[in-house]
Design a protein around this nucleic acid. Structure first.
Lengths: 208, 208, 208, 208
DNA sequence: AATGAATGAGACTTCATTCAT
DNA sequence: TATGAATGAAGTCTCATTCAT
């Protein structure tokens, strides 16, 4: 079984295996996006991938490992993209704007990933019922945003506020795009982005 | 069977039955809050309530009707509370503040209800996979907030902005409290509230 | 409970109780005729009767006793009717004709009773799986028919044949009306009867 | 899951699967013959087959598909047998005799099949209560018999009668064997057959 | 590396029956 | 007598997982 290799250092994973894993994860995302996590069974994923159920069990220790992979994929893919867009900026305000714009753009282009993440969020739990995913999973992103905010305060661009609360609020505000885009397919992303940028500019900048 | 009464106009529901239904709904909320919707079974709810599985089937047509009841309970209870707190206010800014304060307070005092609602949200679906709950379920609340915002704009208190986007942002921002309170039990609600109030005051008011 | 009275001699059964039992049996027949024995539950019968499920358990020891009652009703009601029509006849051939005509007429006017009987027949069993109803339940009727046939043979009206086989065949032939009338609602009963009469006249009479 | 294959054209059914399905159908027939359709559960069938309950669900979409298979098996197996025996005959009377003899013989050698068919007949219904099996299921056989009868009339062998009624009567008469053989295990099939042949010869032939 | 087959636990639901009122 | 409430067993079905090939 694959799992052992992984356990003792996940060194060697053959090319073909990597490909299969990626394919299965991709199909899992599609299926979950369509029918929801609760209605998703390994059988459904296998059918979508055109393979037999057993293959999934062969490549993943169990359903949980597969889902974890789906989550990881959704998390890390966005992170890199957004970071790259922030890095070029000089002022805190510009960074904030870049964060908002990049995140919304990522959401727009990765609709399925995000839908799935949102869906798995509450359903994915340990055996005793404790959620495997909670706000702490957002800590890395949250920390990055707080850094920007603190930088702005130190630089005299931003007023005094709890960087924590502002970071959470910002994240939630941007996530609002997700909820709207699910319900209203022809959402005007650019307009939405501009509104958010203005709103948080006003909310953070130092009043004269 | 109970179901018939409900079908032909839910006329008379005996006192004892109302009580049982309420008890079962309450237990369902507790259980879902603890182990999550996905892991919640009728057996678990029955055990928690100290009754036999059959009783649930006797009082509710099926699992779906029970969950729907849980959702309704969570939705309507908050609505009335928040509305009553807004009504006394004269200015749009005061209404906004009241909305934020009341909602956070409700979240704080109804932690389980809200956790559950969040959890059920994505998992509760029709047989074909379509979510039974989506953004449209928030429309009533959203409309109320937009009304406040429009009123503020007309009255010259608020600047020009998309009331839609602002309303969504506001709702999301307040919901941020839910995510934080789940992860950090000793959250300072008052401080959090003050930050939000200030933030949205700055974000909405007309600049001089 | 009622059952005791019944056990020790079923002497006293109050007027109201007799009425209730009859009503319940009648409703049971209706329901079984409509949805089939397998799909018939006490709840359904109770609903049809406009009473609560408990009432049935109160008046009948259990489901089996109720069904037994239904069967008895169906059996005895027809028996008396047919016998009375045979008694007036003088020749065996006339008796045979009377038997056929009376039975078909009874079937036509008691469609539900017969449908139900047919349906219960195979489903009504002892706990170990042995049928409670089998051909032996028809023995009384069968015996009566055989008597007619033997009488015809002794009197020189009928040819030699196994009265047993002929009786079974006759009964089955008449029951054919049941199967046809279920599938073809506008069956011409009179024509059907005439055909049967002729057929069995030819089949039984002494050839010249 | 097996069901898909079947949906899109039942293309390839592996050897081992075909065998399992046949085994399960056979066991189902045995069980139903013993305890009756109503008391037959998937658990019972599985136990008889020495397999786990899930296997049945794996090979059949549901209980209904299994039962349908049982019915089909019972229906088609007899049909072919009887037809082959009729085909060699030249006169209508000989065909009739062949039909009776072949059918009785089939009943004798396929006791369980027939018992089961009789039992399922009334109990196998659609969700709304409509029987899945009714007289129309016998139409093919009925039509074949009527054809013989009409042929006899045209050829001047048979008298005038309703071929419909005679066909039904004939079928019912032969089915009488089923009822008798269930109740009286040592039935003399040959004698019974001879009686039927004579009876219907007299009933159909043209009188001189 | 993959597959088909099988398993067994657990979920929801139905139902005859019992019981206190 | 009648009722509503409750019970617990049994039934069907789904599903993640395991295993021989």
């Amino acid at each position: 079984m694959r799992s052992e290799n992984e356990a003792d250092g996940q060194k060697k994973r053959s090319f073909i295996e990597t490909a299969r894993r990626a394919q299965i994860v991709a199909c899992a995302i599609e299926v979950i996006a369509e029918v929801g996590y609760a209605q998703t069974s390994l059988a459904l994923i296998a059918k979508r991938a055109g393979i037999s159920k057993g293959v999934i069990s062969y490549h993943f220790k169990g359903k949980d490992e597969l889902i974890q992979q789906v989550v990881d994929e959704a998390f890390t893919s966005g992170d890199a993209f957004v970071r790259s867009r922030i890095e070029g900026q000089m002022t805190a305000a510009a960074m904030l704007r870049a964060y908002i714009e990049a995140t919304v753009e990522f959401y727009r282009t990765h609709r399925a990933h995000m839908t799935v993440l949102l869906d798995i969020w509450s359903a994915f739990r340990h055996e005793d019922g404790r959620p495997k995913l909670d706000t702490t999973a957002n800590e890395p992103e949250m920390a990055a945003v707080e850094e920007i905010l603190r930088f702005g305060q130190l630089a005299g661009e931003f007023r005094e506020f709890s960087t924590r609360v502002m970071a959470v609020t910002l994240k939630q505000a941007v996530d609002g795009v997700l909820t709207q885009m699910a319900a209203y397919p022809d959402l005007d992303f650019d307009a939405y982005t501009r509104e958010l940028v203005t709103t948080f500019d006003l909310a953070t900048r130092k009043e004269r």
